[in-house]
Design a protein around this nucleic acid. Structure first.
Lengths: 123, 123
DNA sequence: CTAAGACCTGACGTTGACGTCAGAGGCAAG
DNA sequence: CTTGCCTCTGACGTCAACGTCAGGTCTTAG
């Protein structure tokens, strides 16, 4: 399939796909005229890339992770790197959880105040 | 206390504090010569700001949240906003969790391969 | 008094993941 | 064969949270 179709199926922009290729995250066959062609598996690959981006991994880390996801292998240095990234994600999840709890208690508290008969909460 | 001391106590840069003020997140008294002076409670305020930034909230959202954290009140529109932000954080936590699990299984798998007698994993 | 820091404003630089635009070429339908 | 959409490369724009630098002021220890 061509780049537009892949973009639509994976829910990303055409620009993003070209950027992924530029970053070495996604390879594409080229037609004689230079147009990119992707296999069906490209959709899952892009979804994986998106998932890793969503986790806050920079392109360089994703570039390191991707081949290992395919082969299931890694060098000890890479393992150390991945472990560090995983720990970073763990910390970020804790940060998110505490911020979420703070927002949550704010919401619950304000809703309680609001339902207790106050005309309309202060601005 | 002055800005350098607050920066040290809160673990952020002086530049960051001036930026927070610029964004309306942090107020400071001014000495006649124009220097900023903060109360002791400034430390906790900065830590809270940092926590919200760490959760991915942009300055505008933080600016909306901060007064409500103090008063415990909020308008219905703000509540809707906060709920949306909380849901976004929830989604982000799920994204992080799935990416972490993927990294984790990669780590576990690669470590198993590595310990099963392979000379040194492929690069 | 003076020198060393700390502080001020204002402004430009940085980074990452794209958005957007320009100008040119490719491809299937009619 | 042309029309209209898709694609190409290359390059500049964006946005947020600061970093960094310049040039000047303030404060405080000696």
């Amino acid at each position: 399939m061509r780049i537009g179709e892949l973009a639509a199926k994976a829910g990303v922009s055409v620009r993003a796909l070209r950027y992924y290729e530029e970053q070495g995250l996604l390879v594409a066959e080229r037609s004689p005229s230079g147009q990119r062609h992707y296999p069906d598996s490209g959709v899952d690959q892009v979804l994986l890339i998106q998932q890793l981006y969503a986790a806050g991994l920079p392109s360089r880390s994703i570039r390191a992770v991707l081949p290992c996801v395919e082969t299931g292998e890694a060098t000890p240095e890479l393992l150390e790197w991945f472990t560090a990234e995983r720990d970073r994600i763990d910390r970020q999840m804790r940060d998110l959880a505490s911020a979420r709890d703070r927002l949550d208690s704010l919401i619950v508290g304000a809703t309680a105040v609001w339902r207790s008969g106050r005309p309309c909460p202060a601005r």
